[in-house]
Nucleic acid binder design. Structure first.
Lengths: 333, 333
DNA sequence: TTGAAAGCGCTAACAG
DNA sequence: CTGTTAGCGCTTTCAA
């Protein structure tokens, strides 16, 4: 593979000049730069990004850490992030900690190491179970970190939707539709989004003067099977709920499957709403009433912030960006 | 950020020694290496992978190019690939050419450039529309390339399933179930997997002595909406098909939706089989009868091959690995 | 308008 | 058993 030196020799100029024509970083006599360009073409030269990175201390790549590539929400988010990043000539390497398969702690540790080693310019952290220590560790190394999700971290930039308000809205919407027996299937334990949504649900109930029945507040996992199991529990209650707010779309689909398998009809016998508004929501039948999670806006903001930090902007206050959510009404409730 | 030099100074050894204790690459007196390790710990030193890469000419990163992060097949495949790669301390950066959104040519060009620039050690190419020129271009740079999909490329390693045989199997299976009016919705134009599956379908018909009706052979896109539209066309035929082989799961779901929207029942009025066996297939209702695409096996083989090539193994013959497929019977047919 | 040369942080001969 | 040193391929002063 040709190096800058080969090009310089072939064009009879110094390597400095080659560098400058490649990067357009200072004026070069047209005749000279033509010679250089010809040489580059002839040799099939492509500047070595590694050497360049070593010199300029920047890799033009950022890491994105997500819990699960299998929940469509994350690919959708990742796609937006990639699209945004590519516009600034950035690569993004996606690290899935693969939470559903359970080896996530180990994987996360590995990823954190390679992120340091490979000197990525920034990391975008979409809340995984162990957000706090991981983020702490990352910050200690000095990499710009931006978090997706509302984990209270005064020391990092973050962007997220107001899970609490969204959940309250869903509950209020159920109430407005006449429901009185409203249940919630929460997300994975210890994630702030799970907790916030649950809190919003409870608050929605309270605001409507409805009692919070403990058996209408069951734990899920953010996965389909968790939704299925939880719904089975709910169906065993008597009287059973007429409306269920599921912590995400996967959970909602699991819940619907449990209803179908139990001979109940959605939304006729029981209304179900999900969360995220992934492609599943519009594909599944019944189509899912759900909350749009702002993947487009979150993706855009998050890379905007990351790039700004890389450039060293706004060093003082950390940004907390709350992106609007929106209830999308479809068939399931 | 501490460098190897800082560590050396603090531990009163040469940088060579530090390097060797970090990499375990030659014997070091226990007492010395302890001192070094303490210094490393104290300074929070982490070797600079960029500098290392420059020196050893390897990045421990490979690229994976896929057409679409939004078709669950690819995240599933990517997850396996990541898992396999991580076991050999490799990172994989996923580049989605985002075919459904149409800017793929441009994106692909960009990715190809950055792959060269960033000196990735290998690239795994999951067939996109313009496989041939892209692969050619990649090969010209000397990077090991392994292709997923059966594009006839004598000069690259590839791993894939036998699309032709799989499609023939599906057709034969329909015939065995008594169907005589069997239609096919193909995948995106010009992709070898589309063509092979179509060819297999036609052959299956012929083998059963059934005529190939041109109106039962309609074009899809590998996307849900393509399946929907194609199914609408099929339903306009008279008599209409009693069985439809869709080129992938997304297409099959689109087709089912079209049936439902037209007041037909699946599988009672019409049987539909998909392809890929993504998580959608087991989640959707009716659950999808489909062909398992071997994502686990393909993922494993593909990184095995890539790693072998990186190591410079089997320089002569290119490997063509065909992974077994399997018809998974569920509810939709 | 261009060149010479230092140096980014590391590995790996080579020497002792 | 350990150290010295020459680069890997580039960018960027500084000087001309």
């Amino acid at each position: 593979m040709a190096t800058i030196r080969d090009v310089a020799k072939l064009a009879s100029v110094s390597i400095a000049t080659v560098s400058h024509v490649v990067n357009g970083t200072r004026f070069v006599e047209p005749a000279t730069s033509d010679r250089v360009r010809t040489a580059i073409h002839e040799l099939g030269f492509e500047a070595d990004g590694i050497a360049r990175s070593l010199r300029v201390r920047k890799t033009s790549t950022m890491a994105l850490i997500i819990p699960d590539l299998t929940n469509p929400f994350f690919p959708e988010l990742a796609t937006v992030i990639q699209q945004e990043a590519v516009r600034s000539q950035y690569d993004v390497v996606i690290h899935s900690t693969d939470v559903p398969h359970g080896n996530s702690e180990e994987l996360l540790g590995h990823y954190l190491r390679t992120i340091r080693q490979k000197r990525y310019d920034a990391v975008i952290y979409a809340e995984t179970l162990s957000a706090t220590p991981a983020v702490q560790q990352l910050l200690a190394t000095g990499v710009p970190v931006v978090v997706i999700g509302g984990t209270a971290h005064p020391e990092v930039d973050s962007v997220y939707i107001d899970d609490y308000a969204a959940a309250r809205d869903v509950t209020a919407w159920f109430v407005a539709k006449g429901h009185r027996a409203i249940a919630h299937i929460s997300g994975a334990a210890q994630m702030s989004s799970s907790e916030e949504r649950r809190r919003g649900f409870l608050e929605g109930l309270a605001a409507a003067g409805l009692p919070a029945r403990p058996d209408f507040d069951v734990a899920g996992t953010f996965l389909r099977d968790g939704g299925y199991q939880a719904m089975l529990q709910l169906l065993a209650c008597s009287p059973r709920p007429t409306a269920v707010f599921a912590a995400n779309d996967l959970t909602a689909i699991g819940a619907i499957l449990a209803c179908l398998d139990s001979g109940l009809r959605v939304p006729d016998d029981i209304g179900i709403v999900g969360f995220d508004d992934t492609m599943l929501a519009s594909t599944y039948r019944p189509t899912l009433t759900t909350v749009y999670h702002g993947q487009r806006e979150i993706g855009a903001e998050v890379v905007r912030l990351a790039l700004a930090r890389i450039r060293g902007e706004f060093p003082e206050e950390r940004q907390k960006i709350i992106v609007p959510h929106r209830l999308v009404e479809r068939q399931s409730a």
